[in-house]
Simulated scan of single mutants.
Amino acid sequence: MKTIEVDEELYRYIASNTRHIGESASDILRRLLHIEQAPLSSEAVNEEAKAEAAPQLGIGVEQMLKGEEFASQESAIDRFMHILSVLYQENPSAFSQANDIKGRKRIYFADDEAALLASGNTTKPKAIAGSPYWVITNTNTGRKRNIIAQLMAAMGYGHGLIERVSQSI
């Protein structure tokens, strides 16, 4: 598996063509470009079976969006932190994708406060409730939305839910 960087417009296009939860970017691009996939190895078949057995994503997030606790959050930071906590609670193993989300000069997530403090000035790290992760909070609302969108996409959430959640910040 290789990693490539794409601009925001291409990322949104790929994400908007997601047909089901957990569909990979490779699968989406293969479908859009009409490229057939090679037969699956036994390891890939096992991974696919695990993915099908995984709980459906989004139920906890949907409940959060409808809940009074989330609605009562007054600041963008509080809503951001609440969303991150719910994402972790819903799928802790997929949340590890957070470690791959970084800015040009800063890391956004870490296992401890010190790593975030070392990554830049005035990062204002906060612990994500119920998780072993910390996140920087000294970013504007647009960046917070982008962080949530990137994380949710990496975790396998659908485009529509990603948009609703990121816009709720």
Score class of each variant (00 low, 15 high):
A44S: 14
A154I: 04
A154E: 13
Q37K: 14
I147K: 06
V6E: 01
M152A: 05
S75I: 01
L40I: 01
R145Q: 15
I77N: 05
S24Q: 06
S93G: 00
L10H: 05
K2D: 07
E163K: 15
L87T: 07
D27T: 14
R106F: 03
G158W: 00
E9Y: 03
I148T: 12
A129R: 10
I59A: 10
T122F: 10
D78F: 03
A127C: 06
R143N: 13
V86L: 04
I136D: 08
I147F: 11
G58V: 12
G67V: 03
A114M: 09
L161G: 11
S131M: 04
D78K: 13
I14P: 04
E9I: 12
P125Y: 07
Y13D: 02
E47Q: 15
A149Q: 10
A149G: 13
G58F: 11
R164H: 15
M64A: 05
G67K: 01
R31N: 07
K124A: 14
E74Y: 01
R104M: 08
I4R: 02
G130S: 06
A38E: 14
G156K: 14
I101V: 10
I59S: 11
T137G: 06
L84H: 00
P55F: 06
A54W: 03
A127V: 06
P132I: 08
N17R: 07
L40C: 05
L33G: 10
E5L: 07
E23Y: 05
P125F: 08
F70M: 04
Q63E: 11
H34C: 10
Y11D: 11
G58Y: 08
S96P: 00
Y133L: 04
M1V: 11
N138E: 08
N99S: 12
L84T: 05
S96A: 06
N99P: 00
E62H: 10
A115C: 11
M1A: 07
E9A: 12
E68P: 00
R79E: 02
I21R: 12
K144F: 05
M155S: 10
Q89C: 02
I59V: 15
N46K: 14
A127M: 07
L33I: 13
V45P: 03
E23L: 09
H20T: 09
R145T: 09
G103M: 06
N46E: 15
I101Q: 03
K126V: 08
H20F: 15
S168V: 12
F109K: 04
T123I: 02
V165N: 14
Q37F: 02
D112N: 15
T141H: 08
R31T: 07
K50D: 11
V61E: 02
E47V: 11
R31Y: 09
S16P: 04
A94F: 04
I148N: 09
V6M: 03
P125G: 04
I59F: 08
I136Q: 04
L117R: 12
P55E: 08
T137E: 04
P125N: 09
R30H: 14
S85F: 01
L29H: 02
G130H: 09
S72G: 00
H82S: 07
N138V: 01
G156E: 07
A118R: 14
T18Y: 00
P132V: 03
S26N: 11
S41E: 10
Q63H: 07
R164L: 15
I21G: 08
L151A: 13
Q150S: 15
L116M: 06
A98G: 07
Y157E: 10
I14L: 09
I148D: 10
P132F: 06
